[in-house]
Design a protein around this nucleic acid. Structure first.
Lengths: 118, 118
DNA sequence: GTGCAACCTGGAGTGCACTCCAGGTCAAGT
DNA sequence: ACTTGACCTGGAGTGCACTCCAGGTTGCAC
């Protein structure tokens, strides 16, 4: 079973080491395994979770929802809840996206208008 | 020349009254005209600017850049600078959008995978 | 002319998501 | 063995963009 140091985990997941500790404190990650000396040793499972959490964060999921998802992942009979959570999030993402696309349109119209002045 | 009370301006622009005052303090809006009693009276020009500022904010432009844009709008020989600023912003928006679209894809793949378990 | 909502000011407080710090421990190369 | 860098903890600090507050003034409706 491969494990990863904090630095490796940070670089592979895209979260900073401080953020990894923060997520653990916040109960988003389960308590991470330790070496004899007390250093964290992240597993492949945690890496996978972290990569997906990164996706959730980058699509704007707030940390509180992240915690809910992370906790659901600690039990394997929670797939329906995870689906529900992700479906709801997907909907939110779609709405945000539609909003931004509309504003992007306005922005490019404004630019066109400015260019027509020159 | 129509003018608007703070409450009207807030409801038309989508910013709160507190945010309108904050933007004025921050130099994003020019000093707004006042009635005899000292109450703000927003003009159509300010309304128009605010509506566009809303578009810029909702596409993630930071307040510091907003200030730059607002200040450029106080002089009418700054159209090239405004174009440059908006082109740069449009590029940033496009990048963010591409990012989110990619993550949205991952999200829907994950959902598909979860659904396939049931 | 009185009530009451909307407005004013300067300044303090909030929420979110980290990020940094001090003071100490652990691990790997030489 | 010793150095050096990565890691540990609890807790404080940061940055952004507002948002709220106290204590007072204005202005319309009755």
């Amino acid at each position: 079973m491969t494990t990863y140091t904090p630095a490796e985990t940070a670089s592979l997941s895209g979260f900073s080491i401080d953020t990894l500790r923060y997520y653990e404190r916040e109960g988003i990650l389960p308590a991470v395994a330790r070496t004899a000396g007390g250093h964290r040793a992240y597993s492949d499972a945690e890496l996978g979770l972290l990569e997906f959490l990164k996706c959730l964060r980058e699509t704007g999921m707030p940390v509180e929802r992240l915690r809910r998802y992370g906790q659901l992942c600690q039990r394997d009979d929670t797939v329906p809840e995870r689906i529900a959570l992700l479906e709801e999030h997907a909907e939110t993402v779609q709405k945000q996206l539609d909003e931004v696309l509309a504003q992007q349109q306005r922005l490019s119209e404004k630019l066109e208008w400015y260019r027509s002045l020159g």
